[in-house]
Amino acid sequence: MTDDWAARRTEAARVQAERLRARQDAEHAEAEALLARFVRAAADAGLAHERLEAKGYGGKGTARTSLRGWYLRTDRTAGVTTDGTFYVLTAPLSPLDRLRGVRLAPQRPPLVLGAGGKDGSSIDLTEALDRLLPGWQAPST
Rank of each mutant, 00 (worst) to 15 (best):
A29W: 01
E27Q: 15
W5S: 10
T65H: 13
R19G: 10
F86L: 01
T81G: 11
G116D: 12
P134H: 06
E50G: 08
D97A: 13
L52V: 01
G114N: 11
S94H: 09
Q16A: 15
P110H: 12
A6S: 12
K118P: 08
Q24H: 12
P106T: 08
S94D: 12
T126V: 08
R68D: 14
F38G: 09
K55L: 02
F86G: 02
L20A: 12
G120L: 07
S122H: 11
E53T: 08
P110T: 05
T2A: 14
L72R: 08
G116Y: 04
S94L: 06
T2M: 11
S140Y: 07
G69I: 01
D75F: 00
H49A: 15
H49D: 14
F38T: 06
G79E: 10
A128E: 02
D44W: 02
E27A: 15
H28Q: 14
R37G: 09
A31E: 13
L132I: 03
T126P: 02
V80E: 01
V39N: 03
R14E: 13
D130M: 04
L89N: 02
R76N: 04
T74F: 08
W136N: 11
A29V: 00
K118T: 04
A6P: 01
D124E: 14
M1A: 15
G101D: 06
K55A: 09
T74V: 04
R68A: 13
D3R: 02
T2N: 15
L35T: 05
A13H: 12
D119A: 14
A17F: 01
E32D: 11
A138V: 03
D119C: 04
A13L: 09
A13T: 08
G84I: 02
G114S: 08
D25A: 15
R8H: 09
S122R: 09
L113K: 03
G69Y: 06
A42M: 05
R40K: 11
R14V: 01
L125K: 05
E50A: 13
T65E: 04
M1D: 12
R64P: 00
R23C: 03
A78H: 06
D97L: 00
E127W: 02
K60P: 00
A115C: 06
T2Q: 13
V102D: 07
P95K: 13
L89W: 03
D119M: 07
G56F: 02
A6W: 05
G58F: 09
G84L: 09
T77L: 10
E50K: 07
F38E: 11
L47Y: 04
A45N: 09
D119Y: 05
D3G: 04
A41E: 10
E18I: 00
V88L: 10
A105P: 00
G46A: 10
A105E: 15
W5T: 08
T141N: 13
L93N: 14
D44T: 08
V80I: 03
G117H: 06
A115I: 00
Y57R: 13
L133M: 07
A91N: 14
L72P: 07
L111H: 08
D119G: 09
A138G: 09
V15N: 10
L129R: 05
A115L: 12
E127H: 12
E30D: 14
R19F: 01
R76E: 05
A138Q: 14
G79D: 10
R108T: 05
S122P: 06
R64E: 11
G84H: 06
R68I: 00
Y71I: 01
V39E: 02
R40Q: 14
S66P: 01
G117D: 09
